[in-house]
Design a protein around this nucleic acid. Structure first.
Lengths: 339, 339
DNA sequence: CTGAAAGCGCTTACAG
DNA sequence: CTGAAAGCGCTTACAG
């Protein structure tokens, strides 16, 4: 099977390459009859136009890129990422775009040089970025590189007007969580967050603090790094503190909540009787833990899908838009049940 | 920043495009001095050769593809996949190959048409396939399409001589698991496997049966589909059976083991006192469950890396090879502890 | 060691 | 509606 080309098809049909191309791409310029003959022959021969030739002449790669920049260990255990990826890929496939995936573990530098390379090689038409940082260098960099992008899950407060993105209102989510704990009778709670360099963490912290103040709740803030062991250690530290102990803890993700649960068990304390727990991300881990952990469900798959659709729209028509995501729903489980 | 091209670089340096190309690609045909000047200028201009132009002239896409064909829900909760992906991507990046990822949920048909399209468009240079099936249509299809591939984690018994792949000796793993249960005093066990259409499941089943026979153990085989609820339901059915109940259960993956644990709890039975449990895949779920579940650890990240390296070698030099993976290691946890 | 030229397989104005 | 031709930006024999 020597490789067919558009020239071959044109010859077989006794027409020009141009006509074949027009027919293939649904462009005007060919009769319906010719178009049918072209499409039928392509189908019969199992022929597809070469993506690289197309990319070169169209100056469009036909792919978008995504860099997963995190500890591989964390990525592997965080169901969140995979669900998001699945949503993204599904939307891209529908828009006939391929997904180029890159995982880096050496942090922002490696992520940024990946964008530089992708832009230079014109390997992707756009990228999807997430985990918005304070003074995030990526929007500036991507603008300079001329690489279109969508910022996934930017905090509502930092909603960028100059570029596309999905936004999340963490204040509302914080209120949902704090209200629930207040309802359950807690008056002194801890908030074990991820790194403050993430804008969403700062917004969550502010949200928790403000809502707690309104209820007259005390909040102890602890900053860690999303790892299971960090959640564990944070709990140990919190419970050893000389001040009055907290009776409830909010964790920035499911892994830290799991670590927290392990710590409680080690200390001989019970959840929720001694300490109640809430996770800011829902996952199978929360469902399966014992006790099962109350968590904010945010549908990462759907969110990924929306972000990908924004990127497709941006590439297609240059439309810049901001889409607010639905608020999280708190899934109540045993970890915050009232004894 | 109007886009630089190789012609631009050549002009700036007062040399021909050919020389620039040779210099860039480490080919002979340019003096060291010229090569340095070219590389320095490229660096200074932040210039990279266009991947599509390169792909077209080299007839090489510079990317390999991978289709994740599974229920998105399962993919999202199975840490196994993400770990494997991370290993694969790391190896590919080192070999300067991009990873094109596609997720399909409508099963084998969609997976196969993805390969047809990729091959037709010459979008990828090769693919990585896994979950070997009985009468697997993929090797034949890929051969016909002329798309190089590596079969990841083929059963040792079905080790293909005609194509590259990593292999796993499930008989050894089965022996490890069965021996452990025998040591713990179990004489009647259940094996809740994934679908028999997967060759690795059949090999595991045979391995378990043979090893059990040697010890004089009885084995009840149950076929399900890897879903958490299936593990749950299998356990309910098993424990309702009129025959003598099993005292230990082996699950084909971690999710089914988790489902099994839930079922036990519902039935008011305890693990390991009433029923011991082992999972054929290790994961954070097994570690965090209560009781924590004894599981076979197989290092999916490392295995993915090796598979990717085989593919790189195949694409580079056409080398066909089969690499046996290390046996799994049983991580002992409470679910099989002796009371 | 270097340069001019053809070729990779498409798309797209431009003339007919 | 159709065809001849240029162009996308590289690589690679082939002559010098």
């Amino acid at each position: 099977m020597s490789k067919e080309t558009i020239t071959g098809l044109a010859k077989r049909l006794g027409i020009s390459k141009a006509s074949v191309s027009y027919a293939l791409n649904g462009q005007p310029g060919v009769s319906e009859l010719t178009r049918r003959r072209v499409l039928d022959l392509a189908e019969e021969l199992d022929w597809y136009p070469s993506s690289s030739a197309r990319a070169l002449s169209r100056s469009r790669a036909g792919a978008v890129g995504m860099v997963l920049s995190a500890d591989p260990l964390l990525i592997g255990t965080e169901p969140h990422y995979m669900a998001m990826l699945a949503g993204i890929e599904t939307a891209l496939a529908e828009g006939d775009m391929a997904l180029m995936l890159r995982m880096v573990d050496k942090g922002p530098v490696q992520e940024q040089s990946t964008y530089e390379r992708w832009a230079g090689e014109r390997k992707v038409d756009g990228v999807l970025i997430f985990d918005h940082l304070h003074d995030d260098p990526r929007p500036t960099l991507l603008d300079r590189l001329g690489l279109p992008f969508v910022l996934h899950s930017a905090p509502a407060s930092a909603a960028p007007a100059s570029y596309s993105g999905t936004t999340t209102d963490h204040a509302v989510d914080a209120a949902t969580i704090v209200d629930h704990l207040h309802d359950r009778g807690h008056r002194r709670i801890a908030h074990v967050s991820g790194p403050h360099r993430f804008v969403h963490e700062e917004e969550r912290i502010r949200g928790v603090r403000e809502r707690a103040a309104r209820h007259g709740l005390e909040v102890v803030q602890v900053e860690t790094d999303y790892a299971l062991t960090s959640g564990h250690d944070a709990v140990v530290t919190l419970l050893r503190a000389p001040e009055a102990p907290v009776t409830a803890m909010v964790f920035g993700n499911d892994l830290m909540a799991m670590g927290g649960l392990l710590a409680l068990r080690e200390l001989g304390l019970r959840c929720p009787d001694d300490v109640a727990m809430v996770s800011w991300d829902d996952s199978l881990h929360c469902r399966l833990a014992s006790p099962a952990v109350t968590a904010l469900s945010r549908n990462p798959g759907m969110q990924g899908r929306v972000a990908a659709e924004l990127l497709l729209a941006l590439l297609d028509t240059g439309t810049i838009q901001t889409k607010p995501m639905p608020h999280g729903e708190l899934v109540l489980r045993s970890s915050t049940a009232t004894g």
